[in-house]
């Protein structure tokens, strides 16, 4: 049997990325401030993780406006959803197979 850890996605190693992806899985879209509050990180830290996830193509950035203020929201992409689902399955398998 191969090592179950191989199936775990390295991209989701960080707590912040895990938080972003978990949140996006269950919300159609979410904005920066809500995300910041939920995960509890600094602006810079969150922004850099978002950028990384965007570059891999796991999330999509939508720039919009609320009145005159910019309102940037994030949505999960198909590939992001699939990869995260695989990550979840891998985690579950780890728990079941290793004793």
């Amino acid at each position: 049997m191969n090592n179950p850890i191989e199936n775990l996605n390295k991209t989701f190693d960080s707590r912040v990325r895990l938080g972003i992806m978990s949140t996006l899985m269950v919300n159609d879209q979410i904005n920066f401030n809500d995300l910041k509050q939920l995960i509890g990180v600094t602006d810079g830290n969150l922004a850099s993780h978002i950028k990384a996830l965007e570059e891999i193509g796991y999330l999509k950035v939508n720039k919009g406006f609320v009145g005159k203020k910019t309102n940037t929201t994030y949505t999960i992409t198909k590939s992001g959803e699939r990869t995260f689902q695989q990550h979840l399955t891998a985690l579950e398998r780890m728990i079941k197979t290793t004793k």
Binding site: G19, T23, V26, L38, L91
Partner: peptide, 15 residues
């Protein structure tokens, strides 16, 4: 893994 899944579940619920 168990802890990570719990974190994920928690984030999903909270958000």
């Amino acid at each position: 893994s168990l802890q990570e899944l719990q974190q994920i579940k928690n984030m999903m619920e909270r958000s």
